[in-house]
Design a protein around this nucleic acid. Sequence first.
DNA 1: ACTTAAACGAGACGGTACGTCGAGTCTTACC
DNA 2: GGTAAGACTCGACGTACCGTCTCGTTTAAGT
Lengths: 214, 214, 214, 214
Amino acid sequence: MAQKTPPDSTRRSERSRRAIYDAALALVTEVGYAKLTIEAIAARAGVGKQTIYRWWTSKGAVLLDAFLDLGDQAARAAGENAGQAEIQSEIPNSGDLEADLKYVLRATVDEFNDAKYDAPYRALAAEGLLNPELGAEFVEKLLEPQLQLYVKRVEQARDAGQVAPGVDPRIALELWAGPLAQRWLMRSGPLTHDYADKLVEYALYGIAPRPETS
Amino acid sequence: MAQKTPPDSTRRSERSRRAIYDAALALVTEVGYAKLTIEAIAARAGVGKQTIYRWWTSKGAVLLDAFLDLGDQAARAAGENAGQAEIQSEIPNSGDLEADLKYVLRATVDEFNDAKYDAPYRALAAEGLLNPELGAEFVEKLLEPQLQLYVKRVEQARDAGQVAPGVDPRIALELWAGPLAQRWLMRSGPLTHDYADKLVEYALYGIAPRPETS
Amino acid sequence: MAQKTPPDSTRRSERSRRAIYDAALALVTEVGYAKLTIEAIAARAGVGKQTIYRWWTSKGAVLLDAFLDLGDQAARAAGENAGQAEIQSEIPNSGDLEADLKYVLRATVDEFNDAKYDAPYRALAAEGLLNPELGAEFVEKLLEPQLQLYVKRVEQARDAGQVAPGVDPRIALELWAGPLAQRWLMRSGPLTHDYADKLVEYALYGIAPRPETS
Amino acid sequence: MAQKTPPDSTRRSERSRRAIYDAALALVTEVGYAKLTIEAIAARAGVGKQTIYRWWTSKGAVLLDAFLDLGDQAARAAGENAGQAEIQSEIPNSGDLEADLKYVLRATVDEFNDAKYDAPYRALAAEGLLNPELGAEFVEKLLEPQLQLYVKRVEQARDAGQVAPGVDPRIALELWAGPLAQRWLMRSGPLTHDYADKLVEYALYGIAPRPETS
DNA sequence: ACTTAAACGAGACGGTACGTCGAGTCTTACC
DNA sequence: GGTAAGACTCGACGTACCGTCTCGTTTAAGT
């Protein structure tokens, strides 16, 4: 989990860990990842630098854990409020794949436009590009779990005959997830609900003319 | 071009500029973008630090210009060899959109797997994520021109009736370009010719079952 | 006694105390006083840091006690071997002051040239220069007792008419002890038996020409 | 001069050098040598740490140069004020060795009791005890030149028949210089004019009873 | 012999300073 | 006036120890 393995411990200070997460997330938003400094995190958290170096190897590793923890917290909060239906842990299945995908993709668009998540997520993506270890962890812990939700939903749709039998769900989902991520990361175009809808439609029905429509 | 505007001059040393480009590209491959320093570029180029600071604002800006120059050189070289048919400046139009796209996408896959381009391109993408100015320049100078080639080819196909009339080409191209970029950047899956083919097929015909095929 | 007073106890671990002394003396010789650290002493002694902090206030205090203990051990060992005549606890009185002083001073020169005592003794002297408390303790426990032996011997000589009646023994002894210590500490000249002899002669008879010699 | 040799230079900032000397001397008096920090010197001098590390190897080396510079300044100031009679550069020769030595030794006692010189001088002595390189430089640059003044004066006295012909001046001077330094450094007794006088008398005439006095 | 409170080993903690690296600015000498 | 060289101030790096503070675990005194 991005931690240095050696220092065993139950002796670890929970208070410090939380303070470090909070400081890291606050600072990355305030000053940006490039100017984020382990020294500043330590100072803001009221913690010695060594306490950070003891448990993490880099500012990227700290931020990744902080962000994962943020997700866990959100999930836990949602779980408490909503009984069993944990938010984000499942893509709805109303029987209408197109509607369901549009619904989720619009929510994703909103999330990408939320300043709270933008800075840390973008920072982790950027770090992951340059740092294969952290990139792998980023993908494994953060990206892939979310993509697997689409895999599952596409498989359900395939079983229901709404998706062609030969289609590879892992590739199919990239038709909408890839463009969305690209636009967001590269700022290469506006991220709107309409854009999300179009992606779903194009992905489902292709851009070639359809022989006929029922 | 990412240069500081003020000290413009014809007195600029062409020799230094070239040496800086070469040093930047060599170093980013050798030590990685994170450990790339202006001091090292200057030393390797046999140039004073001030000469770099005079013309660029950051290592990212240097690298972007270096990479653009690399592209220009390649284009110029190709132009000389091949008369009018400049490589990469046009997507072939054989009349068969699917075949043409697969051809180009396979070439792109090969390029992404070429170590020579990987380090600098990846570095610029990462820097662009965090640095909006450089990101915008990256998109404008590097990304968008390539995407526009797809726009043009899709429009040709639409005019030929191979693409549905209502389709927005700028979004359509993202169906294959987005996933490809995502997999490359995030290392979230293998980049193969087969993958490229599938992307084209899914994009053209959708993942929903087709009513019937002529 | 260099110990922090509060945590008094008979419960103190003798084993730890000895291990700390040994570690301190070994380390000061190996790495030098400047690089001597409490953490290293604790590690070498197989002892928790707190055990050192519980009984001493600084590395200097530890070393002083360790060195005093070393002296006690030597004295005890000598006492066992030699019956009542404890080595170093008395300056011989053969009736010939000059001979007795030369004998003792030559022995002192040999001791100063012994690497075993050099490092810790030098360290304590240096620490004492900067730290008045420890310096006072150093003088009181280590230096003054040795000087008092000279005081006693000079008084004996004065009673025997070998020293002028008006002479202050406490100052007189400094005529040879001061130069010797100075040369040793400052490395400002060679420490030889001949040098020791000359000091005694000059101190006894002065450097001015003698009116006549019996 | 305690400087690291590599970085050549006429380019060196005189302003920084002076500021560093002033800061080092002020701080060693204020907080003591043990708590003297290169970081604090740099901060006080308004200088980057690197500028100190560029020219010196340790805080001791800085302080030694600072102290030597202090002496140079004093000498230069004295030279300007007093024409040819530079202070401290010569021991007076009135023809009466005893009187001259007492005069100089009393002045030395006063100097040792001057807080301005105490802290840095003591610090350098302590550092010299532990650090042979710096100790050698301390002796060569600071201690030995002062002792040589005594050598010269004793030789003059010997030529004038006031010192026995066989006496080694280099050892003779230690009879008073050694005890004085020892008392000062070790704080092992009071430093008074009377003590200085006695040292001179004992050294000149010895502590043994004189056969008779003319 | 059993209980119990202290000293103990271990080592995480908030800090300070280390000595190094590079950023970006400035000065000097050269062309 | 642009340039190579490199000294400068500044800030952060990652490391080493400081002295304090828990944690169990001995261990020896007093019952």
